[in-house]
Design a protein around this nucleic acid. Sequence first.
DNA 1: AGAAAACGATGACATTTGTCAATAAAGAAC
DNA 2: GTTCTTTATTGACAAATGTCATCGTTTTCT
Lengths: 193, 193
Amino acid sequence: MYNQLFSYISRYSESPLTVEDETLIKSALKPAKLKKKELFLEQGNICQYTGFIIKGAMRQYSIDSAGNEHIIQLALENWWMVDRESYLMKTPSVYNIDAWEDTELLILEADDLQRLLEIPTIKEMFWKMNQSSFIASQKRLNNSIALPAMERYEQLLKSYPDFVQRFPQHIIASYLGISKETLSRVRSKLFQK
Amino acid sequence: MYNQLFSYISRYSESPLTVEDETLIKSALKPAKLKKKELFLEQGNICQYTGFIIKGAMRQYSIDSAGNEHIIQLALENWWMVDRESYLMKTPSVYNIDAWEDTELLILEADDLQRLLEIPTIKEMFWKMNQSSFIASQKRLNNSIALPAMERYEQLLKSYPDFVQRFPQHIIASYLGISKETLSRVRSKLFQK
DNA sequence: AGAAAACGATGACATTTGTCAATAAAGAAC
DNA sequence: GTTCTTTATTGACAAATGTCATCGTTTTCT
């Protein structure tokens, strides 16, 4: 299970991990399990952990005044899941995070993260991960303000085909910012072409 | 003009800059000026510089197939402006960046950035800046998929009141992902309350 | 100062998307 | 294996937002 993380790190960083590095990482990241629908973070609480998904599927979402869920992030194997604002600033989160499938994780507390960042390889990995997260978020934002529903869905099919396999349509719809009925209609138009 | 940048850095970082640090920074960031409407980055080109705005106002936007501009970022004094994806990966950008007011900048090439990142204070500043950028982008994304036009505008008024002072309504509308007419109507409803 | 361009408001209408309700199929739970 | 829940589709209608055109005002340019 740690090998999966090590291999992830090596893909993001030039320099290899030493044996001591690996020991430190193992002491900082602890295995955890979530049942389907189990909460990893509840709205109003402070996000205590960053999770690295070994196996499973998770979602991060807000709930509006009408009680509707709005999915701001979906994540599968080899993704990090955390509400960064809450985790870093130690402020109550406005988001929920839960498991969509039974999920195995490695979890990391904020203090332990600080220790790990002493390792240059780890620092480099998180640096690049931050960059990619921001770039991905900005792309999604651009799609959201610039494209109609159908094209947003087509972009998603291209960028994250796995999502469509692993999450039901109403989750995908919420991720795209449209209603499940609209997504259903978009799909029927798309496939009759 | 460099003092403004130094003061910005000191607000983002614990440790102070040494005189040698300041010399290195001065050699890496070069002054530049843009006239209103002048392009800083043109769609299809590789983004060569990161700009730190000393004075002025800039926008980053995409242009869709119908020729409409979609603003993905606005920036004023003490903001960084760059298409990070293009700058880091050296790939052609899908965005334009231009000046909305006559603007003074300090510009930084990618190679020089790498040199600057050797300075821990600078590294820390960019680290935090990356975090904030991501958090801000995710918030805006959440607003975009979760809130109707009027509430998005109210959020903007709270979060970035300066934008409304410095940019005309059609720019703000594009930033929010709505038409200028809709924004005009939203405003008249809002103020008659 | 005068002309041109940019800006903002508004009406009429079109389009997109959302909401609600009904239905059927697929999957999960016991 | 049967019941309950979840998922997906579809129709009818409502609401939000976009488009196009017009007008008056302000700003910019020379």
